[in-house]
């Protein structure tokens, strides 16, 4: 009896861990492949040997208790961890079979291909128009003002915000409601025409109605972009994603079709989380 308890309370050594992700993490035609990804903040390891493929035009949800490393993993995919002092990423992450941590890879260009939407809406303190135009401007995507206008309009339309703001494009973005701000941030992200969009709990600061709008938007965006979404709401994961990955204490525990994970979790930890025993 006592030996069992001691075993449960020892922190597992990552090297001799022997942990295996439950479910098939590979895909036939992946857009992103991650192999043996370890992430450290200083001496502290936050992710342990993550293996995961992310497909074309799918929405994959990352779920798990807070502090389990979902955001950390997300930020590996566009090298946002580079700007955190003391953060180190090991392993192999490929986007369309290009090593994104290779020397030749410019993180600036990578981030134009892998866009990111954050937990708290973070519009720049500029006009609505300038927010959306910011990305296209720095990447030189528009040759002239008409083209830029067009990009702004299509992006806002895709983000489902055009009707609400078309008469006040020159107003400050900070005057919008929280939900509108978050859709503006999505418009800003897709204005640079990325291949992948990373979303880190995009609805956690929003009310239910704004959340529903964004969830619908995510579903529509799936036809053009690969979307990786972190969420703490299991209903949301069930509603918007095709595949789900469950993280626990820096490890990827289980991955599979969303319907299967939610109806028939195979790992006890996943089951505990999904049935609401902790999280």
């Amino acid at each position: 009896m006592s030996t069992v308890i001691t075993e449960r309370h020892t922190t597992p050594d990552p090297e001799s861990d022997g942990h295996r992700t439950v479910g098939d993490y590979t895909l036939a035609e992946p857009r992103i492949t991650c192999r043996h990804v370890n992430v450290f903040y200083g001496d502290k390891q936050a992710l342990f040997d993550i293996n995961l493929d992310i497909g074309q035009r799918e929405v994959i949800a990352l779920i798990g208790p807070s502090g389990c490393g979902k955001s950390t993993f997300l930020r590996c995919l566009n090298r946002m961890n580079d700007i955190i002092e003391g953060c180190r990423v090991e392993g192999d992450i490929r986007l369309d079979d290009q090593d994104i941590y290779a020397k030749e890879m410019d993180p600036v260009l990578l981030r134009a291909r892998v866009g990111m939407v954050f937990q708290k809406p973070n519009p720049f303190p500029k006009s609505i128009y300038d927010n959306v135009a910011y990305g296209p401007r720095i990447h030189g995507l528009a040759g002239n003002r008409t083209e830029l206008d067009e990009i702004v309009e299509t992006s806002l339309k895709r983000a489902g915000l055009w009707k609400e703001v078309k008469d006040r494009l020159d107003h400050p973005a900070t005057g919008l409601s929280g939900g509108q701000q978050q859709r503006l941030c999505i418009a800003r992200t897709i204005a640079v025409n990325p291949e992948v969009v990373l979303m880190d709990e995009p609805c956690s600061a929003l009310d239910p109605i704004a959340t529903a709008t964004i969830e619908q938007l995510i579903d529509e965006l799936r036809s053009r972009y690969t979307i990786v979404i972190v969420t703490h709401s299991m209903q949301q994961a069930a509603r918007v994603s095709q595949r789900t990955a469950y993280f626990h204490m820096g490890r990827l525990i289980e991955v599979g079709k969303t319907t299967e994970i939610f109806t028939n979790p195979r790992h006890p930890l996943t089951e505990d989380y999904i049935t609401g025993r902790f999280g």
Binding site: R111, N122, Y134, I138
Partner: peptide, 26 residues
């Protein structure tokens, strides 16, 4: 706020672009 910095970097802005386009105006 850190979030504005991240927003700019997340769009593929270089450090110089982030400083001149977002941080200094703010």
């Amino acid at each position: 706020p850190r979030s504005l910095r991240e927003g700019a970097y997340g769009l593929g802005a270089t450090q110089a672009e982030t400083i001149t386009g977002v941080l200094l105006p703010a």
